[in-house]
């Protein structure tokens, strides 16, 4: 049986302490700059805050994983190298990386610190994963959310590193690390600036009939009826009119969250080493609720008991949840 580590999000020092206290085995977080894929206003850690957070986590036996999972623009690698050096000085337990140049720098400069391959690298085949393991010493891969459990089992047999899968939160299905939709509308890059749908370009408006529209850079990407639940203002979850669908439809994906609470035993059996909860941009309330629920579930499974996980639908996007491709590739 794998260890089934619980990997939990933290966007602020207070959220990190909440995750640790709720039972996280490891917490992932980032600095206040473009080196991570949640470079949102008012979020993340200064180096001093990171040092205090690592001390707090280590004191309670929890690991801290530093997300350096964006791609430096060509020739502008200093920020990523400085972030890696700061993380090493502070004593983080692993770096989560996507870019080969960043991976190479860390492998050469800080060879004693573990490298995890971010979902942003979109490595979904044994060949791709082995390349990162062979060349940079990657110890764990975070798999994209597009694989079935039998496929994960097959991959596990063919790679020399651990597997981490998302179990709750954003149901991101674009080819991660390659999505340019935000860049197309706003000029800012999800993959290089760390901002998907930057808040400075988002606008909400409520209308006379009670509906609410969400706009990104002036483009309406959805309009929720008075009684409809809402989602994030991301282009991939927008609703659009098309000649064949004049009433508007979700062209890519609908507002919905991943929830694999019922599949945890199968994932463990397939050889998944770590379970990742998405949501560094979410509140302490979310972190407390989701981490506690999955802590209890994983402990129940480890003890051979039936996991009886709390209902988390109130925390999901659009207040809907799915098991996505993990259950079947025909989930829509």
């Amino acid at each position: 049986m794998s260890l089934a580590e619980l990997i939990c999000p933290a966007g602020t020092p207070a959220a990190l302490r909440t995750a640790v206290d709720a039972g996280a085995d490891a917490v992932y977080c980032g600095f206040q700059d473009a080196t991570n894929a949640r470079n949102f206003p008012g979020l993340n850690f200064t180096p001093d805050e990171m040092a205090a957070a690592v001390a707090y986590a280590h004191d309670k036996g929890t690991k801290v994983l530093l997300a350096l999972n964006t791609y430096p623009p060509a020739g502008k690698v200093d920020l990523w190298r400085q972030a890696a050096d700061a993380g090493a000085r502070i004593g983080v337990d692993a770096f989560i990386v996507a870019d080969m140049g960043v991976a190479d720098y860390i492998a050469r400069t800080h060879p004693d610190i573990r490298l995890h391959l971010s979902v942003q690298a979109a490595a979904s085949s044994p060949e791709a994963i082995r390349y990162y393991c062979d060349n940079f010493g990657v110890k764990r891969v975070v798999l994209p959310r597009i694989l079935t459990i039998p496929e994960i089992r097959e991959i596990r047999r063919e790679i020399p590193c651990e597997i981490e899968t998302f179990i709750f939160g954003n149901h991101g299905l674009m080819v991660e690390g390659r999505c340019s939709l935000t860049n197309y509308l706003t000029g800012q890059s999800t993959n290089m600036d760390g901002v998907c749908s930057p808040a400075s370009d988002v606008e909400y408006a409520r209308h006379a009939d009670g509906s609410m529209s969400s706009r990104l850079a002036g483009f309406t990407i959805d309009c929720f009826g008075a009684d409809e639940k809402a989602g994030y203002p991301t282009i991939c979850k927008g609703r659009y009119r098309a000649p064949h669908r004049p009433d508007g439809y979700y062209a890519f994906e609908e507002p919905i969250s991943l929830n694999l609470s019922r599949l945890l035993p199968e994932l463990i059996d397939a050889g998944v080493h770590a379970f990742k909860i998405e949501g560094r941009q979410r509140s302490k309330s979310y972190v407390r609720g989701v981490v506690s629920a999955f802590r209890q579930a994983v402990d129940d499974i480890r003890a051979g008991r039936q996991a009886n996980i709390a209902d988390l639908v109130a925390l999901t996007e659009g207040q809907k949840q799915t098991q996505g491709a993990f259950e079947t590739k025909k989930w829509r």
Binding site: A205, R206, F224, K229, G231, S283, S285, L315, G318
Partner: peptide, 17 residues
């Protein structure tokens, strides 16, 4: 932080302009 702001927004209980 007894409630999650994103969840309240999804539920349409919270409005931001």
């Amino acid at each position: 932080s007894e409630e999650d702001g994103d969840a309240a927004f999804f539920a349409r209980d919270l409005e931001v302009t």
